[in-house]
Amino acid sequence: MKKNVKFRRLFSTIVLGLLVLIISACGNNDSSPDPEPQGENENTEVTLDSAMGEVTIPANAERIMAPYHEDALLALGVTPVAKWAIGQSVQDYLEEDLKDVPTIEWNLPLEQVLSHEPDLIILQNNMDSYEGTFDDYNKIAPTYAMKEETVADWRNQIETFGIILGKEDEAQKLLSDYEEKVEAARGQLAEALGDETAAVIWAAGNQFFLFEQNRHSAEVLYSELGVKQPKLIEELGEADAASWNPISVEKLSELDADHVFLLALEGEQGIQTLEDSSVWQSTPAAKNGNVHIFNDPSNWTNKGLIASQKTIDDVLSAVGE
């Protein structure tokens, strides 16, 4: 009898010990995730080097202002709190997404900035064009001044904005998709144009601006899509970003391009001037009916992901089908 009691006690002790071990093991190896604290999946603030030194970007900024660089914001799925404008002039190619967004004047008057109550401001590295100083804007909201290379290179801008907005994966996907678009378009145009050349002319009022090989969308046309340059474009060399001089109709007579992309608002005087000019009508593109008119010059006169995508679509619609 005593042996049975001792055995039962020993057995109970062993079972109890095993239960403790099992419970402990289950507690340590539970594969089900713990409930996430509120906000764990939200962005966290990040400190970045900028043109004005290190800047801490707030987490989950919602009211973002990046005047003239709304292209990058929209590409990443972010609608700005205000859009860049000069008077009534805006970046028309973005208006489908920004038509209901209020404007802010190009020189960023401090009172206007304040009225939009931003919680993040993104500016260019050159502050001279703004009414306020960096410190003025930084007092209104955390302000990031892009480095020169970020302002100049829209791909760099997409990557930088991706970091700022906590959308790095989306930024890389955008860039990858764009390269695929370029590659496909390049193949289509090689087949459609072969060795034929093309040029871009912007008619503003009654003045004409011939795009050098790296001027705005011409860089997409020549460097990315591989379209051949006519001799006159080669002679112009690279553009001086600080200056842009009109070209005379007489000089345009030297333009031996097989195709011309003519950028002009509907009813622009320059279109009629060219149609009435025997000099212009004698150029290869005009004689062969290969002057392709686009009434929205805005994406052609900007650099950005969306601008470049729209330019590619324009070129394909004109000569790539």
Rank of each mutant, 00 (worst) to 15 (best):
A171S: 04
E235G: 08
P297F: 12
L175E: 05
N107M: 13
I312C: 07
G205R: 07
Y144S: 05
L316A: 05
K310D: 11
N295Y: 07
V113I: 14
K83F: 12
E238R: 13
Q309D: 11
S89Q: 07
F294D: 01
L255S: 01
R186V: 01
L108I: 10
G17H: 03
N107W: 14
M1K: 07
W106E: 11
R186C: 06
P67R: 01
V279P: 00
E234H: 06
L110F: 11
A190N: 12
G320N: 04
K99P: 12
T150P: 00
A72F: 10
G320H: 04
V200K: 00
R186P: 04
G132F: 02
I22H: 01
R8K: 12
N245C: 02
F11L: 14
L274P: 05
S308W: 05
K99V: 15
N107H: 15
Y178T: 09
R8G: 06
L232G: 00
A75R: 02
A185S: 14
D153C: 08
V249T: 07
G17V: 12
S308G: 06
T13V: 07
I271K: 02
A242M: 13
G166D: 11
E148V: 13
V291Y: 00
F294P: 00
R215A: 11
I293G: 02
A184M: 08
V81K: 05
Q172F: 09
S253E: 10
H216A: 11
E266T: 08
E179W: 04
K99L: 15
T13L: 13
G27M: 11
A185F: 02
C26A: 15
L263A: 01
E238C: 03
A198Y: 06
W154V: 12
V46E: 04
K287A: 05
T311N: 08
K228S: 12
K167T: 11
I293V: 13
I104Y: 06
N156T: 10
P33Y: 09
D177H: 13
E149F: 13
Q269M: 10
K99R: 15
Y137C: 00
P230R: 00
I121A: 02
W300Y: 03
Q38T: 15
G87C: 06
L110S: 12
R215M: 09
F208L: 10
K83Q: 15
P118W: 01
L73H: 03
P109N: 08
Q88V: 11
A307Y: 08
D314K: 03
L94Q: 01
G270K: 01
A184G: 06
Q112T: 13
G226V: 05
K167Q: 15
A286H: 02
R9W: 08
Q172W: 08
V20K: 10
P102V: 10
T56I: 01
F134A: 06
K181R: 13
N28P: 01
L16C: 12
G39T: 14
P142E: 13
A204Y: 07
T197E: 04
F7R: 15
G304S: 11
A257Y: 09
N214M: 04
A204F: 05
L262T: 02
L316Q: 06
N245A: 10
E159F: 08
F7K: 14
W280Y: 03
S317G: 05
I306P: 01
M52C: 09
Q188L: 08
N138A: 15
D92Q: 07
N43K: 15
D128M: 13
F11T: 05
E254R: 14
S278C: 06
G237T: 13
F209R: 02
